[in-house]
Design a binder for these strands. Structure first.
Lengths: 218, 218
DNA sequence: ATAAATTTTTAGGTTTGTCTAAAAATTTGA
DNA sequence: TCAAATTTTTAGACAAACCTAAAAATTTAT
């Protein structure tokens, strides 16, 4: 059995490993993301290593074992499926769903997850454009780039965001930047690297470099 | 904040109080239903009393305070709404949903509960015919009777069950006894008080007294 | 009415996941 | 390179929710 807390650690280790490009995750990094102290993380790492969910050499950081990865992916799968449910079926905004999905992701029932998946039409991506692993843990590939890395005048489609903070998402809402909209970069300011973009071929808006860096497009 | 465990105790106290016709619930009764020992229940009762969720005089059993009742009803509301979701939207059988709903009932988000309620069409009863309290904690009234208390030849409608065990529910499925079907008692055996009933005016079946006692009809 | 049986509480312990403080290992930089 | 800074681990505690064993209160039954 895997506790709520253990599942959270494994999920966070998975995500930080991805961010790190596959490298070990450090105790301090984990402490920040679990809202606990490094000492508590050390304790938990010893425990997760005992259960063979992580590869752990003292002072060297951790990576997930096959089994740890399986559990992490199952939690991420549930999180993202529930996010689709909250937005598509219940009408929540994409900025309102994170905390609820953090709870729902720990509900333990394979049958539930698979029926939910079917009910939602087996979605491949969640409302933020993040890929949903399938029942076997396989992630759809995305191959997206940052809007900030896109050439001028090349029309692209908005596919996801790399930051999930409610304020960022609300900012996008206010500017009518939604998943699926088309974006063409008209100009990048010399001064502050802010972007002038055309949305859906219809209207022109300005977004900061900070925004452009966190928009994923194809 | 109310923990998962505290919520469970309050829910169980509510239900046992109902069963007792409003009387105090004893420590031993609670120990049985929480799958713990009387000593553990004692500890928890002291804690719940400190938080003013229950009225507790040592050795005298407990009842809920207004606040305890409010929390219990909110947990029951969530449990029953999720059961409707599982059956109506995901296609689970009524015998498969209890354990999943036991987990979902603790998800903490008022917005979620109310949006789920709307999504389901504000149902008044769950898949077992149990009443769903509204957001203020008000229960729809039922006024049902046991099939076993119904006169011969009076057609009634099946409205609920007073036992939720999967085997009982599967037994009803096998006999095509479902919520909403019509039932007419044709005969009651002198010997074992078993029932011969007509289902939906179309076919005749036999059910034991044990079954008839646990069918709620109107 | 009071002894026996039952129920409930108390006392003392365990496990999980957290903490602070201090020790140990690693990394950084002069 | 080696001392200072940083990171990580260990040691010792604590709260929540459970346990067993024993004591205390209540109920039952002669």
């Amino acid at each position: 059995m895997t506790s709520f807390t253990e599942e959270n650690y494994l999920k966070i280790i998975y995500m930080l490993t991805e961010l790190n490009g596959g490298n070990e995750v450090s105790t301090n990094e984990l402490a920040e993301h679990t809202q606990t102290k490094a000492a508590s993380v050390s304790d938990m790492l010893r425990k997760l290593a005992e259960k063979s969910y992580i590869n752990y050499r003292k002072y060297q950081g951790v990576t997930l074992t096959k089994e740890g990865q399986r559990i992490a992916l199952s939690v991420i799968r549930k999180h993202r499926l529930w996010e689709v449910f909250l937005v598509e079926k219940l009408g929540f905004g994409w900025d309102e769903i994170h905390d609820i999905a953090e709870q729902l992701e720990h509900i333990d029932s394979k049958e539930l997850t698979e029926k939910l998946d079917d009910f939602l039409g087996n979605p491949q991506f969640d409302p933020h454009g993040d890929p949903i692993p399938d029942a076997k843990g396989k992630m759809p590939t995305m191959g997206y780039q940052k809007l900030s890395d896109t050439p001028l005048n090349q029309p692209v489609v908005m596919m996801g965001v790399s930051v999930h903070s409610p304020t960022f998402l609300q900012h996008l809402d206010k500017n009518q930047i939604t998943l699926g909209c088309t974006i063409k970069i008209q100009e990048i300011s010399e001064f502050d690297k802010s972007f002038t973009i055309v949305l859906n071929d219809t209207h022109t808006i300005f977004v900061s470099n900070e925004v452009a860096k966190n928009l994923l497009v194809k």
